[in-house]
Design a protein around this nucleic acid. Structure first.
Ligand SMILES: [Mn+2]
Ligand SMILES: [Mn+2]
Ligand SMILES: [Zn+2]
Ligand SMILES: [Zn+2]
Lengths: 146, 146
DNA sequence: CATTTATTGATAATGATTATCATTACCATC
DNA sequence: GATGGTAATGATAATCATTATCAATAAATG
């Protein structure tokens, strides 16, 4: 929380960027936010505090947050880019319910190791990966089976 | 090749859809095509044989091919949907070079098994998944390191 | 204060995909 | 082979998330 603000502040000054009320407002909203969210969703939240804010500013700010290492893009394949916290939130993958959209964050170090090995077996140097596991969550399984 | 045509023919009649010269043409182009391609790319190919064909027809046909089980969508995350053969091309994942875009099809049954297990550990019933491994291909590694 | 440079928000543009719709092609029945 | 019903096509407009543009504003600098 404090640490994230410090990181962003340093990012701004290192890049000759300015600290503005809009950026502060969006940063606050971002830091409060848990889970995954789209630019539009963050815009709606921020608009309540300052209706004059432009959505372009929110899009721009999310780019900055990603570059500063505080945010990470998540693409669930529905045509809308989402974001999640990156600081103190190490890499993980996602389990997604096809029915209700619920997501669970998962991480399996054996899979991660095997991914690296598969890439190497083709001479590739693995830099990152995306893995989305789709299925039915417990709730939706119950509803479907009855 | 013959078999695919038969499957598509059955799909058409089962759904009260008609066999048309446009569909034949697109089907031919699709069957000849190896690797992954976008609707636009297929449209460009097909246009050479019949310049009067509409791109909407190509988009529509790709939907049909997917529903008939002959094609499968592949999303490399660059905003363009691609397709690949589905018949006689069992499930696999993709290794993608971040530099030149080259792709390699990979398949690791241990990973597949672990994915199922991870999903089950959260009470999910796994239906499918996407996995993209990104990195540098051998050629691009060489160029970068020198 | 004056000048420079960054920032903002409104708005237009983009680009892939989808929807619309009038026209055309196909099929079965009379 | 005329007719009525339905499917298919292609041109075009619409969609929708994201980017680009740009004139107006604000911050920093000296
Ligand atoms: Mn996450
Ligand atoms: Mn493939
Ligand atoms: Zn669910
Ligand atoms: Zn490469």
């Amino acid at each position: 929380m404090r640490k994230e603000r410090e990181i962003f502040g340093k990012y701004l000054s290192r890049h000759n960027l300015r600290d503005t009320p809009q950026r502060e407002l969006i940063l606050d909203a971002f830091l409060k936010r848990e889970k995954h969210f789209s630019a539009e969703e963050l815009y709606d939240i921020v608009k309540k505090s300052d209706p004059s804010i432009g959505q372009a500013t929110v899009y721009r700010m999310l780019k900055l947050l990603a570059e500063a290492g505080l945010a990470r893009e998540v693409d669930f394949g529905d045509g809308v880019m989402r974001y999640e916290h990156s600081y103190n939130h190490p890499h993980h993958d996602h389990l997604v319910c096809r029915e209700c959209g619920k997501t669970v964050e998962v991480m399996d170090s054996v899979i991660e190791e095997l991914q690296k090995r598969v890439a190497e077996s083709f001479g590739f140097e693995l830099t990152d990966h995306e893995m989305y596991l789709y299925g039915l969550c417990p709730d939706c399984r119950r509803k479907t089976q009855k």
